[in-house]
């Protein structure tokens, strides 16, 4: 495994991806520094989810490179399963395993991927659940939890593997409005604790308050990026202004 020296936790270089002739990523470059919270915004179909899903190769890029801690995920000798441990992912629809308790959901990969014995895995899983404020729900099944609680369990599931970066794919889009706050609070705490995060979301207020950097994507390419103040205050590109204006209506 070739490790390159890099100041970035995650680096996408020239990512390309097409679905059936339709190019959804047109050579995207994006880098995330340690402890940074980067927000990706843009109209639907702009390629932001695909970009995120290429970052752990759930989606196979057609071209380009993804580096995590300097390791090229696309390189032939890279053990992708080992690398995925280092890239946590949280999905829009939670995707908890319905046949396992919250504790079972969080400890599965600890046991089967990291190789912890059942008991140690249980303790680490419980600690992760505690970090999202759900230690008391360890024995509950997903169906017994609210949407917000399910999403926090999903965060704990990724968190338990001690990833170098966490990817959030529209983590609050499937939630009832009154449940969004809990998830955002958990994400904010996570960021405050030093977790590196790349977030695709429509929660503009959260982006404004919590993000270090906001990236605006449209048509499979990054249009502009900058601090929340810059992007929301004085967007440079016409398309960014149009998108934000559309949201404000």
């Amino acid at each position: 495994m070739v490790e390159l020296v890099t100041e970035f936790v995650l680096e996408a270089r020239g990512l390309r991806k097409s679905f059936g002739g339709q190019e959804v990523l047109k050579g995207v470059d994006l880098a995330v520094r340690e402890r940074e919270l980067v927000f990706v915004i843009g109209p639907s179909g702009s390629g932001k989810s695909t970009l995120l899903r290429c970052c752990n190769r759930l989606e196979e890029p057609d071209g380009g490179h993804v580096l995590v801690g300097g390791v090229d995920l696309m390189a032939r000798g890279t053990d992708i399963n080992a690398m995925r441990r280092r890239v946590g992912m949280v999905f829009q629809s939670f995707n908890l395993y319905p046949h396992m308790t919250a504790l079972g959901n969080v400890s599965l990969a600890l046991r089967k991927v990291v190789g912890r014995p059942r008991r140690a895995a249980g303790e680490e899983a419980l600690a992760a659940l505690d970090r999202v404020g759900l230690a008391a729900k360890a024995a509950s099944y997903p169906a017994q939890l609210s949407g917000g609680q399910q999403q926090r369990v999903a965060i704990a599931r990724a968190l338990a593997l001690q990833p170098q970066i966490m990817l959030f794919d529209e983590p609050t889009s499937a939630l009832d409005p009154e449940l969004v706050g809990d998830v955002l609070r958990t994400m904010r705490e996570l960021s405050a604790s030093g977790m590196t995060m790349l977030v695709v979301s429509h929660e503009m207020r959260f982006a404004r308050d919590a993000a270090d950097r906001v990236v605006f994507m449209d048509g499979g390419a990054i249009v502009e990026e900058g601090t929340p103040a810059a992007i929301f205050g004085q967007p440079f590109a016409e398309r960014t202004r149009a998108f934000l204006g559309e949201l404000a209506r």
Partner: peptide, 29 residues
């Protein structure tokens, strides 16, 4: 749903482990 195996694979489980621990138990049920 595909989301189940995607979630499992995203935590580093192999395809076979995903089948054995996540997909098959639900499918059989």
């Amino acid at each position: 749903g595909r989301g189940q195996s995607e979630a499992a694979r995203s935590t580093g489980l192999t395809g076979a482990q995903t089948l054995a621990y996540v997909v098959l138990p639900q499918a059989v049920r």
